[in-house]
């Protein structure tokens, strides 16, 4: 076996997978930042909640009949969409004119509310997540990549490209950007700010659900707060590193974050520096914000 395998190849590959998970969540975060200049703290929990309803539907728990996997996934995606729309209507829209920080604290409130609601529904016990794919994509002497892991990378890449195209090529995408930059003028042109906002949150909810279902698939279980605990902060870091205004930035940022973390964890043992992954990440984030506040791919403003 190549002696470099553990130190280099493994962190690269596992960082890629882990980072894709962050990137998927980061994509939703970037979308909302791009359109409304807010950080959505409830993004990961939208994912958790959606993954939980998908798992409910998959296993026939509670009000759900025992559905086949594709339908269960659909239930999860619809939950994410619905949550996005609901949050927009009940929390975000009344705060249109409030300071952005207020909205951000409100999304933190939504995060806690979703944790509580998830707890009401399923309790603290982890549920096994919906398993979309079961096989191994790649197994070597030092590395194992599951099909779900590979799927996450592919989905992230596709979504990152698709959403970049969405914003540059479609009318709706342009409208979202226009609203974020020029609400008054956009309204004059006849674009409904409210509709656009609802649309943005709907898409963000959907992205959250996709991320949640895939991420819980790689972890194996889902419980209230699980994805927030695992991935929220790295996803934020990914979004900021990549540049919160650039959609492919989430992809790049996610992968960078995943690899940095993985490298540090693999190569710095716990008794030398505990939590080395997070330390390195913090330093990286700090440096990027100080030196290049717009992020790796973002445009300087």
């Amino acid at each position: 076996m190549d002696p470099m395998a553990l130190e280099v190849v493994v962190p690269v590959v596992s960082g890629l997978i882990q980072g894709s998970v962050y990137g998927l969540l980061g994509l939703g975060l970037v979308l909302l930042y791009k359109s409304g200049k807010i950080f959505n703290f409830s993004q990961a929990e939208i994912g958790t909640f959606s993954a939980m309803t998908a798992a409910f539907a998959d296993q026939g728990v509670g009000p759900f009949p025992d559905l086949p996997v594709p339908l269960a996934l659909l239930v999860g995606l619809l939950t994410g969409l619905g949550l996005g729309l609901l949050i927009e209507r009940v929390v975000v829209r009344p705060l249109f004119s409030a300071a952005k920080v207020t909205v951000v604290v409100a999304t933190a409130g939504v995060l806690l509310l979703l944790v509580a609601l998830g707890g009401f529904l399923s309790g603290p016990e982890p549920r096994s997540a919906v398993r979309i794919l079961e096989g191994d994509f790649l197994t070597t002497s030092s590395l194992r990549v599951t099909d779900t892991g590979a799927l996450v990378v592919v989905v992230l890449a596709v979504l990152a490209v698709a959403s970049a195209l969405f914003f540059s090529r479609t009318r709706t995408g342009t409208a979202i950007i226009a609203v974020s930059q020029e609400p008054t003028a956009t309204r004059l042109v006849g674009i409904s700010v409210e509709r656009t906002s609802a649309l943005t949150w709907g898409i963000a909810g959907l992205l959250g659900a996709i991320a949640g279902i895939l991420l819980s698939g790689t972890v194996g279980v889902v419980f209230p707060g699980s994805l927030t605990f695992i991935a929220l902060v790295p996803a934020f870091t990914a979004a900021v590193l990549g540049g919160v205004t650039a959609l492919p930035g989430a992809f790049v940022g996610g992968v960078v974050v995943g690899m940095i973390e993985s490298f540090a964890q693999t190569n710095i043992p716990k008794d030398v520096l505990p939590g080395s992954g997070k330390v390195v990440l913090f330093v990286a984030l700090l440096v990027v914000l100080l030196v290049r506040p717009a992020g790796l791919l973002g445009k300087e403003t």
Partner: peptide
Amino acid sequence: PRDCLTVGNQLRSGG
């Protein structure tokens, strides 16, 4: 810990 990716890889490469 948040997940076992790193430890899993360490175990695997140690055989």
